[in-house]
Amino acid sequence: MPLTTVSRWVKVGEERHRVAGVTHDQRQDSVRRSRPGTAAHLHREPSNRFDPNAVAIFVNRKQVGYLQAETAARLAPRMDAGTVRFEAKVADVWSFESDDADEIWMMDLMLSRFEKRSVEVVHYSRMAQLTFQAAVDGVRSKILPTLKNAVVGTSRATDRVFQKFTGGDITLLWIMRGVAVVLLVGMIAAVVDALV
Rank of each mutant, 00 (worst) to 15 (best):
M1G: 15
M1Q: 11
L3M: 04
T5C: 11
R8H: 09
W9K: 03
W9I: 01
K11G: 02
G13W: 05
R16W: 12
H17G: 02
H17I: 06
H17N: 08
R18V: 10
R18S: 06
V19G: 02
V19T: 04
T23M: 13
T23F: 15
H24G: 08
Q26H: 13
Q26I: 00
R27A: 02
R27W: 11
R27V: 01
Q28A: 02
Q28R: 01
D29Q: 14
D29Y: 05
R33Y: 08
R35A: 06
P36S: 09
P36T: 05
T38G: 04
A39H: 08
A39I: 04
L42C: 03
H43N: 07
E45M: 04
P46F: 00
D51P: 05
P52S: 10
A54F: 11
F58A: 01
V59E: 00
V59C: 03
N60A: 05
N60R: 10
Q63G: 12
V64Y: 12
G65C: 05
Y66H: 15
L67Y: 02
A69T: 07
E70N: 13
E70W: 15
A73M: 05
R74Q: 12
A76R: 02
P77Y: 03
R78Y: 12
R78W: 06
R78H: 14
A81Q: 14
T83M: 00
T83L: 00
V84F: 01
F86Y: 15
V90E: 08
V90T: 06
D92T: 07
W94D: 07
F96M: 02
E97S: 07
S98G: 11
A101T: 04
A101F: 11
D102H: 14
E103Y: 09
W105R: 03
W105V: 02
W105P: 06
D108K: 06
D108F: 02
L109C: 05
M110W: 10
R113T: 02
R117W: 06
R117Q: 06
V119E: 13
V119H: 08
E120L: 05
S125H: 12
R126I: 08
Q129E: 10
Q129V: 00
L130H: 12
Q133W: 03
A134K: 15
A134L: 13
V136W: 06
V136Y: 10
G138D: 08
V139Q: 10
R140D: 09
R140F: 10
R140K: 15
S141P: 06
S141H: 11
I143P: 09
I143R: 11
I143K: 07
L147I: 10
N149Y: 15
A150N: 11
V151D: 05
V152P: 01
V152M: 10
G153Q: 03
T154G: 01
R156M: 05
A157C: 08
R160M: 11
F162I: 01
K164M: 08
G168C: 12
G168L: 09
D169S: 11
D169Q: 14
I170E: 02
L172M: 09
L173M: 09
L173H: 12
W174N: 15
I175E: 01
I175S: 03
M176N: 13
M176F: 15
R177S: 06
A180K: 05
V181D: 14
V182E: 01
V182L: 07
L183Y: 12
L183T: 00
L183F: 14
V185S: 11
G186A: 03
M187A: 04
A189I: 00
A189V: 00
A190V: 01
V192W: 04
D193W: 09
D193G: 07
